[in-house]
Design a protein around this nucleic acid. Structure first.
Lengths: 218, 218
DNA sequence: GGTGTTACGAACTAGATAGTTAATTAACGT
DNA sequence: ACGTTAATTAACTATCTAGTTCGTAACACC
């Protein structure tokens, strides 16, 4: 017989140690910002020690970049599953806007990471080779919907795909990212359940109404 | 005659020392976030010493709160000068949206402070007695425009003043606050001059088109 | 069952950082 | 002139924090 119980799980597992560090680091960075995050705090929340963070990632900054890379990779995977092109242009845009809303609603930590990265002027994204060259499938999708909508005469505005993506994202992002100051100043929690359905409708109607050209000057 | 040259500025001036600390602190906090800001760094950028920060503000956190209070007070003063009620509802909303755009364009540091405060879940705003009870004149303004627009039949959507304010703010805020990650990922600087006029038109058209109900489901 | 390699842990360090102590000087009223 | 107080300075400290040193134990392979 061995000196170790055979039933015991592996005690050394590089993959899960690495993954756990990333998961804990993500929430620590999202909660406290880059400078506010503490490497010791991350270590304490894990089964392993601080030494492992440096073993696998080398530095606080490289750990943070790895967190960003993983977060963005997951988002892009979701975007690739978007399937709205079977719809007529108007409904395709509306649905895309509503799905974007849902996606932001479901990925609050990612949104905080993006907000944090903007405070640092995206310097870490620019340092990442994988992120700096990360296209986004959603732009092609919007381009195709816009072209189809212009062909049918439904869409008349000058905006291009990036503009439309920005318009939709801004609404969805702001609602989550700015919920705290907005709530403190206006006494309304934009992320509360009682407002969710109305705001979700709103982003779809907003995108459609704009593209139809209803806001043009007389 | 006095022992001091009359032309010489006062060497001790509580008001200007206090004001200089606030100004330097604002840009330091905006640049680096709350945790990333360094009290020593603020001191080095001033004519005075670190001790003065503690003399006037007591702690890093109270300094930060004072910076927020001053920044929000300035914004509210601008909002009070908004004068669009002489316009018809549609043009009033469009103009309000475009002025909001201009305002965000001109106050980048304030926007960064708000983004930073959201990362910290507005905990400092809530600690401030003056900020926690800060209403916003713009909400009343929007309410009146909405009522007028519904009376004329121009506006038909369900959104209330807070919703409309959120929709307009999100576009303007996002463009500035997320310029860095957006630029890194999509290769477009939303704040560059070549996009400014188009995006400014866009926020006005978006608000008007939405309120006219052009996005409603068939 | 021995050997090399990968994964891991405890304790440590150098420098940074918020906050303090205590002495000093300018302004101002009388 | 002079005393009082508000404003200011330089040097100090306790603690925190990213990053390291060095030794050890599990695993793979033969």
């Amino acid at each position: 017989m061995t000196s170790q119980p055979a039933a015991r799980a592996r005690q050394r597992d590089a993959d899960r140690t690495r993954a756990e560090i990333l998961a804990v680091a993500r929430s620590e960075f999202a909660r406290n910002g880059y400078a506010g995050a503490r490497v010791d705090e991350i270590a304490e929340l894990m089964r392993t020690t601080k030494r492992m963070i440096y073993y696998y990632f080398g530095s606080k900054e490289r750990l943070y970049i790895a967190v960003l890379e993983k977060a963005y990779a997951e988002v892009r995977d979701v975007e690739r599953t978007l399937d709205v092109e079977h719809l007529a242009p108007v409904e395709a845009i509306r649905t895309l806007a509503e799905l974007t809303f849902d996606h932001h609603d479901a990925h609050r930590e990612f949104i905080k990471l993006v907000a944090i990265e903007n405070i640092h002027q995206a310097e870490h994204i620019r340092k990442s080779e994988v992120l700096a060259n990360l296209g986004t499938p959603v732009l092609d999708l919007i381009s195709r919907i816009l072209a189809a909508g212009r062909a049918t005469g439904d869409f008349v505005t000058e905006a291009d795909a990036i503009d439309v993506h920005m318009m939709i994202s801004s609404f969805c992002f702001f609602r989550v990212a700015n919920q705290h100051t907005f709530g403190a100043l206006f006494g309304r929690d934009m992320t509360a359940g009682e407002h969710r359905a109305r705001l979700r409708r709103m982003v779809g109607e907003m995108a459609v109404a704009y593209l139809r050209g209803a806001g043009a000057r007389a």
